[in-house]
Every structure is written in structure tokens, then in C-alpha cells.
Design a protein around this nucleic acid. Structure first.
Lengths: 254, 254
DNA sequence: GGAGAAGATATGTCTGACATAATAATTCTT
DNA sequence: AAGAATTATTATGTCAGACATATCTTCTCC
């Protein structure tokens, strides 16, 4: 979970990277667009060309852009973007936390996590299970405290992925982290919602301890159902609130 | 598929990035290791500090390393590595193409692709299907030509992922690409093997056209079975050959 | 012995310059 | 006049050296 997604990174190249990423993610600079020259970017963001280059190199690594000498730097096609990268996910999350995004992220979680859970039940070591158990205890101990609940929640899901011993499933933890952060941000409107998932986590854990892959898969599936439901309803609540604010502002403007 | 993984990137910073990544991936610089100072790296790789910084910033973006002022740059924990990144996958592939890696990559493909295929059958547009059909025709036209077969093969699988309209599943295409490249590299010992998958692809495509999610899932599952079988047997053949070379070299040394 | 101050050091940033490669413009040839 | 070859242009790639900043270490003082 690291830190809340505020601008807590003092490094200026990182800030530039984030700003440019935002421009791309929100579609201001569309796919195929050639972006301004490095010198222009430098003067626009009021940093040196070196910092710009460092920022761009970050975005290059994430597949957002590509550059060729003389030709310039352009925004790559959408499906070259490395959307499973944690930073990129967080940027997307804070740039456009839409219902569409929530649906997509829950769709993959539904595909991956139940299977990972089944594998975990078969292949995980007792040590792995103990780590997941500790995470569960942390969630339980957090009570109604949303903030304290978030970290062990992530550790729970991550623990299952780690127990599979599959590097690709482990890397999927970044996506899970983004999803959980999204739920966390949304849970302000309904602080009790996360806590409701506790017994579902317990059920998953019991099936794992029993080394029952089918049960584990099913239990995780139910947890996914609940999570998706929470996110969708929170998003529609938020959307409703936003449109109310919008109309209020509209009235005031008249 | 882009290009074969030879050293075709003239950019020196990219070369350094690759070299350092290799050192990390092969475990020469383990997790937690603090790597040499930027100046030392610069003199070791015989490039300027700026290029070193650019290389490191690439690796930072992929989660391999992290730096703090004064403290230095260190190798991050393995599960922070963004293993689903295409470049990182290719580096891993050329650094240590082990049986373990093959197993892992096929395990995720098995989890993701059949489900993606089912979603594709439901949600894909006729236009999406036509693109997949074109890819299939390309595979068919390639005949026994391994090289010509590879590209449309990737397009086939990628087309299914794209048709889901889910950005996360689309991003999974990088992993599929790495897997296919691995099969391609291995198919030298059995050039006919890829061609055998053609009817299985046809079966998948038919189920998709019929908009039959369950059938599509099952057909893709069978294709995954075949692919895994091919890879595993090719790897064991290669391993056998390697050990034979090894012992031959041993005899010669005596 | 512990708290605070001073120094050392590795990363972060800046400046300005030149190298390189791809494009655009120009010249030369047929 | 059309096309091929050559030159000019230009944006990224690389280099060098300097200073800023943050953090770890060491030293000093109470």
C-alpha cells in the first residue's frame, strides 16, 4: 500500500513523469501524438532537460511513449501500455477512477485470484499460511478502523499470491493493490463496508488450511463478488453525489 | 514480436540497462544488494554518468531497483519486480530460460487465456473476430515456415485479448508474447511442432464465431495443454542436449 | 551515555556542449 | 521534368563538470 497517493515525492523528475503520464492517461495527448520537444517540455515544467529526460525515460519503461532521434517522442498505442505496473495503475486511479476501470479491474481479479487461491491451497507451505493468518489477525484487530484495516487486507491477498510460488501471479499483486486502494478511497462514503468482508476472508483461510483447492477457489470467488458489489455501489453513490454537486453549482451560476 | 532478442539496440543506455538487469536476474546482484555508485558503474561500463542514470531509471521503473540519496541504489525484493513487463520478460527469457520459468508462464496463461477467450466470445465485435480470423489465415498460409508462423500466432492470441475490451487482459498480451517467443526459440529442435497447433486454433475460432463462451473456454484450454506439452518436451530435449555437450566438454578437458 | 552538531558522501539537478540519426531541402543526373 | 544522390537541418542521445540536497557517520558537549 505504501503511501496515500498524494504528491509526497519530492523528486522533480518524478513529478514531471506523473504530470506527463496524467496528460496521456486522460487523453489530452492521445495515442500517436508527437509530444513537444524536450527543450520545450523543460521550459514548460520549469526544470532542466536532464530532468525531463529522466521523466521520459520512466514513461518509456512503462510503455507509454517511445522516442526516435530526430523524429521526436510519441505516445504509443494503448495496448503497449504496461497497465499492470503499480505506479501506472495508481496514476490511472487518481486520474480517472471511473466505473469502467473498476469493472475491468474486478474482472481480472475474478479470473486470477480464485485460481491463485486454489493453487495456494495445494502448493503453499505452512509458513505461507501462517503469514496469511497473521494478515487476517491484523484485519480483525483493526476493527472498524478503515486505515488500519487496509494494510493487512493487502497482505492477505498478496500472501496468497506469494504462496503460489509463481512469479507472474506474485506480480499480479500490484493490480490487487490498486484495486484495494480504490476500495479504500471509496469507502469514505460507507466506512463499515470493508469490515463486512472479514468473515469471507476467514472462509478463504479455513479452506486453505484444509488444503482444499475447490473450496478455496469458491470461497475466494464469493469474496470477489462481495468486493465488486461494494465498489460498484460506492461508485454509483459517488457519481450521484457528483452530479448533485454539479447541478447545485449550475443553479448557483445562474 | 518486434525483433529477435539480439543486441539490436544501439543506444548505450539501453545496453547498460540490459546488462545490469541481467546481473540482477541471474542473481549476481541479489535482492537487497547495494550496487556500486553511479560513478563506478559509469567507469565500469565505459559510459557517462548520465547514461548510467538513464539505464538505472529504466530499471527503477520496472521495479528492479530503488535509490535513495546518499544511501545508494539497491536491488528490490523479488515480488516488487514487475515481471509482467514485456522487456523484463524478454531479458529473463534470454538470461535463464529454465523449465521453472516455462512452467510458471504456462500456469498463468492457463488461468487467463481460456477465461479471456470466453469473454471474447460474448463481448467481442464481428470486427474483432475478423481480425482474429485474419491472424488464423496468416498462420495457415505460413505452412511449415516457423518464422512466418510466429507473428500471426501472436496476433491470434492478442486479438482475443483485445476483443475482451479489458485493459488488464490486453496488457497480459506482453506475457503471451514472451511465452510465444520462448516456444519459437525452442522449436528449432522440432520445427513441425508449431504447425500442429493450427487445428486447435481453428477450433477456438469456430467457438468464438458461434459466440459460445463455454466451448471457447474449453477449446482454448486444449490449446494451452498442447502448447505446454510442446514447451516442456522441447526443454527437456534441450536440457539433455546441454548435459551431453557438458559431458563431452568434460571428456575433452581430461 | 545520550543528544545534538558538524562533516562526508551518494544521489538529484543544472548547464552547456557535441554526436548521431532521421527527415527535409537541395543539387545533380538522366 | 522526374528521380536519384547529396547536403542541411533538427530532435534525441551522450558527454563533462559543477552544485544542491538528503542522509548516514562521526565527533563534540552536556
Amino acid at each position: 500500500m505504501a503511501e496515500p497517493d498524494s504528491n509526497d515525492n519530492p523528486q522533480s523528475s518524478a513529478q514531471v513523469a506523473r504530470a506527463v503520464a496524467r496528460l496521456i492517461l486522460t487523453g489530452v495527448w492521445r495515442e500517436g501524438t508527437t509530444l513537444p520537444r524536450e527543450i520545450e517540455l523543460a521550459s514548460r515544467f520549469d526544470v532542466s532537460r536532464a530532468s525531463i529526460r529522466e521523466a521520459l525515460s520512466l514513461l518509456k519503461a512503462k510503455g507509454l511513449i517511445a522516442s526516435k532521434q530526430k523524429a521526436g517522442t510519441h505516445v504509443r498505442a494503448r495496448f503497449d501500455w504496461n497497465m499492470l505496473d503499480e505506479e501506472l495503475l495508481n496514476w490511472t486511479l487518481s486520474a480517472l477512477p471511473t466505473q469502467e476501470f473498476a469493472k475491468q479491474i474486478m474482472e481480472v481479479r475474478r479470473i486470477v485470484e480464485p485460481e491463485a487461491c486454489a493453487i495456494c491451497a495445494v502448493r503453499g507451505t505452512d509458513e505461507d499460511f501462517a503469514r496469511i493468518e497473521r494478515a487476517y489477525r491484523g484485519m480483525d484487530a483493526a476493527g472498524m478502523d478503515r486505515v488500519a484495516y487496509a494494510e493487512p487486507d493487502l497482505q492477505f491477498h498478496r500472501g496468497i499470491l506469494i504462496a503460489t510460488g509463481n512469479d507472474f501471479l506474485i506480480a499480479f499483486g500490484a493490480t490487487v493493490a490498486a484495486a484495494l486502494r480504490m476500495s479504500f478511497n471509496l469507502s469514505t462514503t460507507n466506512p463499515g463496508a470493508p469490515r463486512k468482508s472479514l468473515p469471507y476472508h476467514r472462509a478463504v483461510l479455513d479452506e486453505i488450511w484444509a488444503r482444499n483447492p475447490d473450496g478455496a477457489r469458491q470461497a475466494m470467488h464469493k469474496l470477489m463478488d462481495l468486493t465488486e458489489q461494494n465498489i460498484v455501489s460506492a461508485l454509483s453513490r459517488q457519481k450521484k453525489r457528483d452530479t448533485e454537486d454539479e447541478s447545485a453549482r449550475g443553479r448557483r451560476a445562474r
